[in-house]
Design a protein around this nucleic acid. Structure first.
Length: 675
DNA sequence: CCCGGAATTCTTTTT
DNA sequence: GAATTCCGGG
């Protein structure tokens, strides 16, 4: 029997209700993860549902991993065997992989990230419309929305009502054809393709419905139309559905999330039961109160009043600093000092910010004080050129049709194959209807290219063919290592990095990547699962499993991340920096009038804090290299004045003057450093 | 075709 | 200030 005694009555009700579709409205810190994990344990342990018939879907790999661990600790490793806990995208990947024939893809298909897709769209638009570059982003977003709404190219063309829409639809059509030709999918396809597959092929849907008998969805307010459709299809007319969400934490509308999916649920599942979790177990009273006050400024569909029986706790502090460097300096020194005062670890502190670029200054200061930190999220790892290069090689290894990967690496490192040669090769490949990779070894090339160029292409083609053969017949990791040695990537880095030191660090990233592939294959071997190199590369692009390693060497480090990335996490002590107009709320959001979503982001940030919360802003900030004067964020004015202490707000106040007098020396230094 | 320096653009947020 | 793109001379 599964122990549900640690849950409060509402939570227990949510965990035990399995007779129909259930919506759990779970406020921040109300223990929703406990409910989901215990419900899964309950389904397995008390309802006799086999783990492999249960699927739980979340939005981040981190959340998925944590959930799986917690379920395992409740029911034991054996009990959780076969349980699916994954992101929507990973579930979609598995479905496409399994059904690749029906879906029209070959086994080693690639997953393209935004950069790759953008490149393709740029090509298409250039070719079809002779367009210069500034519509690309718009078109890419438009195509993404179309896919999120499950609209296929031919429908988009029918629906187009303006020349611009027509242009987008046509670009979409060609783009999608190219993806097919490359044997590739983009992130949106990972959801759209399975959903359309389910709609068009009853037997496929039946197979997955048979497999997944109980579905749980976390962070439901973040689902987009296609994800919701996928959920509906999987559940069908059955009752095995629990979704958990909080409309106040909807912060992904910009990428197609439809928080109204929460209320749509009532329509689509008339027997839907609603359970609200309103007791917060995370934050002190003052923090929770502040969060409630901020979010009160937004309209609400679902009434919800979060309460806590924890004490009031420390007041929330707002710190004004002279400039962004002082701001970071302040946070860094406080962390050093408070760690000793509270006797807690570095890991108990989190510094949150609106945009990834803001991490630089705080990183510098933390380094100066030798404070260990962990920067999470950002494309820091996968955005790195060396990683994109090697991923390009890996992708080409498992999918020779992947022209996007081919283009990335054909002349990296330098093989003296320039734009002219590539242009001609591409022309030839298009003419013959084959991939660029297979075109390299064709005989017909002589007619179009200089013998020298043909020779270079051929050498490359045969070389990679050979490596590919080794990867499939021999030890794949050894083949990859051989490949990297062959191209002397290390030498290339040494040549092209600023300092040898930098080159070394980049090379370490590469080895880390290879090690990830290795670990994944080894790990699969242990469990007796068959994981191919295709799986490994696919998951890598979805950023799955990188974090697994990060987690292994989890140490005592200050957590640095964006507000978005902080959702779902909690920390004893939280700093939110850059609380300034145009930054938080972000300028684009002010212009686009999406302040409400920014406010929810603020709400998410505040509710991460368990014990103390400090909000900081800088009077002057460096932006694009020059100093600008800032105004403090409007959200600061929405906090309950009685519960907060301002520091350094009024330059001319008595206290400030006194302080200034006391720190002549340091202020002199600051003035010198003050731009 | 490559290299180096100059000019330019650029920053939301993520799977 | 950094990263990308542009441009002219080997």
């Amino acid at each position: 029997m599964v122990d549900l005694s640690q849950l409060n009555p509402r939570q227990r009700e949510a965990a035990k209700y399995i007779d129909g579709p259930l919506l759990v409205l779970a406020g921040a810190g109300s223990g929703k993860t406990s409910v989901i994990t215990r419900k899964i344990a309950y389904l397995i342990g008390s309802c006799g549902i086999k783990a492999h018939h249960i699927a739980a879907v979340t939005f981040t790999n981190k959340a998925a991993r944590e959930m799986k661990e917690r379920v395992s600790s409740l029911v034991g490793k054996g009990g959780a065997k076969g349980l699916t806990v994954s992101t929507f995208h990973n579930l979609g990947l598995n479905i496409i992989r399994f059904e690749n024939k029906t879906a029209g893809y070959k086994p080693g298909f690639s997953i393209l990230d935004q950069d790759d897709c953008k490149g393709i769209i740029r090509d298409v638009m250039h070719r079809e419309h002779g367009d210069d570059g500034d519509m690309i982003e718009l078109v890419q977003n438009a195509i993404s929305s179309l896919k999120n709404d499950l609209i296929e190219p031919h429908q988009a063309i029918e629906m187009a009502t303006s020349p611009q829409e027509m242009m987008i639809a046509q670009t979409y059509e060609v783009y999608q054809r190219m993806l097919r030709a490359y044997n590739a999918v983009d992130f949106d396809d990972l959801i759209m393709v399975p959903t359309l597959l389910f709609m068009k092929h009853e037997e496929v849907l039946a197979r997955w419905q048979k497999k997944i008998r109980y579905l749980l969805v976390d962070e439901y307010q973040d689902t987009n139309t296609s994800q919701y459709e996928l959920v509906k299809l999987l559940v069908g007319h059955r009752t095995g559905l629990t979704v958990v969400g909080d409309d106040d934490q909807s912060i992904y509308a910009w990428r197609g999330a439809k928080p109204e999916n929460l209320s749509l649920l009532k329509k689509d599942f008339p027997t839907l039961k609603l359970v609200k979790l309103e007791q917060n177990y995370r934050s002190t009273g003052l923090i929770l109160n502040a969060a409630n006050r901020v979010i009160d400024n937004n309209p609400h569909e679902f009434e919800k009043k979060l309460w806590s029986d924890k004490g009031y706790g420390d007041p929330i502090r707002i710190l004004k600093c002279r400039n962004d460097e002082v701001e970071s300096e302040r946070i860094a020194t406080e962390i050093v000092e408070r760690r000793l005062r509270y006797g807690c670890g570095y890991k108990d502190f989190a510094v949150l910010y609106r945009g990834n670029h803001q991490s630089r200054v705080i990183e510098m200061k933390l380094q100066a004080y030798q404070v260990p930190y962990k920067l999470s999220g950002g494309q820091s790892f996968f955005g790195r050129n060396e990683i994109k290069d090697i991923m390009g090689y890996l992708r080409l290894l498992i999918n020779p049709s992947d022209d996007a990967a081919f283009l990335r690496i054909i002349n990296t490192p330098r093989r003296e194959i320039g734009p002219t040669t590539i242009e001609k090769l591409s022309e030839y490949a298009a003419m013959r209807g084959i991939s660029m990779m297979s075109a390299t070894t064709e005989m017909g090339l002589e007619q179009m290219l200089m013998p020298k160029a043909v020779d270079r292409l051929r050498r490359f083609g045969h070389w990679l063919e050979n490596i590919t053969k080794n990867a499939y017949t021999d030890d794949p990791v050894a083949a990859i290592k051989e490949m990297i040695a062959d191209i002397d990537y290390e030498g290339y880095l040494l040549q092209n990095s600023g300092t040898p030191n930098q080159a070394e660090r980049r090379m370490k990233n590469v080895w880390f990547l290879i090690d990830s592939v290795n670990k994944m294959i080894e790990k699969a071997d242990e469990v007796g699962e068959e994981v191919t190199i295709e799986d490994a590369v696919g998951k890598l692009i979805l950023r799955d499993m990188m974090e697994q390693q990060e987690q292994e060497d989890e140490t005592d480090q200050v957590q640095l991340m964006t507000l978005h990335a902080s959702k779902g996490l909690e920390f004893p002590h939280v700093y939110i920096m850059g609380m300034e107009e145009e930054l938080m709320p972000h300028r684009n959001s002010i212009e686009a009038d999406t302040i409400e979503e920014e406010r929810r982001l603020m709400y998410v940030g505040i509710t991460r804090a368990k014990r103390t919360l400090a909000l900081t802003y800088a009077g002057k900030r460096r932006q694009y290299g020059e100093a600008i004067t800032t105004t403090h964020s409007r959200f600061l004015d929405e906090l309950p004045p009685d519960d907060i202490t301002w520091e350094g707000r009024d330059e001319s106040s008595e206290e400030e003057k006194k302080q200034r007098g006391q720190e002549t020396l340091s202020s002199l230094r600051n003035m010198l450093a003050d731009f």
